[in-house]
Write a protein that binds this DNA or RNA. Structure first.
Length: 430
RNA sequence: UCCUCGGUAGCUCAAUAGGCAGAGCGGGUGGCUGUUAACCACUAGGUUGGGGGUUCGAGUCCCUCCCGAGGAGCCA
């Protein structure tokens, strides 16, 4: 008999099939019994009916408990009463294993308990939906860049020194010297962009910051495009197109998952070009209107980000930040040398920053000055400075945080649920 | 690192003012012809996070340590 995945059941209406999976839940009522089976691709109800109380199928059914593994065979039937619209009229059950008493019951649990059991929590329907949307987001991102001729250039995870010198790094042994886990692929990508024109890297990044908020992970995934000859306006457009494309793809291909999450898709469907574009100083004005006074040079904190993204229904592009609050490699504005051509994109619905980037300094002398001002050891940046010696060109890029993007699309409060095994402050198990 | 809150059955929580530690879910047993986190009955299940103190008596009050959650700073 044909082994079929639950997501493909509609193609097999009125056929006899085999499903291989796990018991999600069961109910019984005398001569009729129901079994909810999951196989990773979906959930389906199995129905067993018998006049005989001692039916061998009933005996097997009674032995089953939550998460027991099994094969079932039976006919696929359309039935409005069944969750998902289809059910299987079960004619045969092969039990693979009777599970031990499963800790995650169909009732409510606390976050701490669920995180401790993350390896099992992944089996539940909402977690399944979030992570299936994550895979679609990642696929969409890769297609977006691949289709536009970007070259995938993976950057190293073990690095000899700080990339940006701002955030704390994880230190590890590298034979007889120290190495640090990458916190960004950007600097290396500036090198590959000079070799390949337009590139992107996609990988994990590590921040040893003791951040403990719903928007932070210690280990997270980021996609970082970098384009030679591109200026701020070019990546503004690119970031807009990228965000739109990701949303379109999820809306198109992950309807069921969005339904499981009870995600209201209207705000996502409403995301359209052009996104509102503001400068840092214009945002300060908006803040003042809303009664939040900030001085020039103050960075936006979580409350400001939340406020901005609530004022606009669209994601918001913010540019032209004070040089002081941005990284050393940011290109200054010709007209306003105290400002840099940085770019942040804040997701709507209060989700805050998902993209950070900007135009990089391409002038050797200026870059050297900035390295000095930031008290960074110039010799560590020798190769980086080389890029400004041999045919230096203006170039720009940005990073998009995968987990924050998924959290926004799924309308999940905390980003820890958007990665299979989140690394958090005070939690590295399982 | 700082601020706030919490730790009681496998899980989620309750326990008036310091006075016999309880419920629902899950487990077990039995019942029910279409259930939707099914339902009904019965049943087992506890060193109240660790240590110390106050008290005739501590889940409850005090000290301390451990663990976790929410948030801040920083950032994607």
């Amino acid at each position: 008999m044909k082994w079929v995945y639950i997501e493909d059941l509609p193609k097999h209406e009125n056929q006899r099939v085999e499903i291989r999976g796990w018991v999600y839940n069961k109910r019984s009522s005398g001569k009729i019994r129901f079994l909810i089976i999951r196989d990773g691709t979906g959930y389906v109800q199995g129905m067993i009916y018998s006049n005989k109380k001692d039916s061998p199928l009933f005996e097997k059914f009674d032995k089953l408990n939550q998460e027991s593994s099994l094969h079932i065979r039976g006919e696929v039937k359309k039935d409005k009463r069944a969750p998902g619209g289809y059910e299987i009229s079960v004619s045969d059950i092969d039990i693979i294993q009777i599970a031990e008493s499963y800790p995650i019951t169909p009732k409510e649990h606390g976050t701490s308990f669920l995180m401790k059991n993350r390896h099992l929590w992944l089996r539940s329907s909402k977690q399944n939906a979030v992570l299936q949307i994550r895979t679609e987001v990642i696929k969409a991102i890769r297609d977006f860049f691949d289709n536009r001729g970007f070259r995938l250039m993976d950057t190293p995870i073990l690095t000899p020194s700080a990339c940006e010198g701002t955030t704390t790094l994880f230190e590890t042994e590298y034979f007889d010297q120290s190495a640090y886990l990458s916190q960004s692929g950007q600097l290396y990508n500036e090198a590959t962009a000079m070799a390949f024109g337009k590139v992107y890297c996609f990988g994990p990044t590590f921040r040893a910051e003791k951040s403990k908020t719903r928007r932070h992970l210690i280990e997270f995934w980021m996609v970082e495009p970098e384009i030679a000859f591109a200026q701020l306006d070019d990546i503004k457009k690119l970031s807009e197109d990228l965000v739109l494309y990701i949303i379109e793809r999820v809306l198109e291909n992950k309807k069921t998952e969005l339904e499981i999450l009870e995600r209201d898709t209207k705000p996502l469907e409403g995301v359209k070009k052009p996104f509102p574009k503001l400068t840092y100083e214009e945002v300060l004005e908006k803040m003042k209107e809303k009664g939040r006074k900030l001085d020039f040079g103050d960075d936006f904190g979580a409350p400001e980000e939340t406020l901005i993204s609530k004022i606009f229904k669209q994601p918001v592009c913010i540019t032209h930040f004070p040089a002081k609050i941005k990284a050393f490699y940011m290109q200054p504005d010709d007209k306003r040398p105290d400002l840099v051509l940085g770019l942040d994109v804040l997701a709507s619905e209060g989700y805050g920053e998902i993209i950070g980037g900007g135009q990089r300094i391409h002038d050797l002398k200026l870059l050297k000055e900035r390295i000095k001002e930031h008290n960074l050891p110039e010799k560590d940046y020798a190769w980086y400075l080389d890029l400004r010696k041999y045919g230096s060109v203006p170039h720009s890029g940005f990073g998009l945080g995968i987990e924050r993007t998924v959290a926004w699309i799924c309308n999940i409060k905390h980003i820890r649920e958007t990665i299979p095994f989140p690394r958090l402050l005070y939690r590295i198990y399982p």
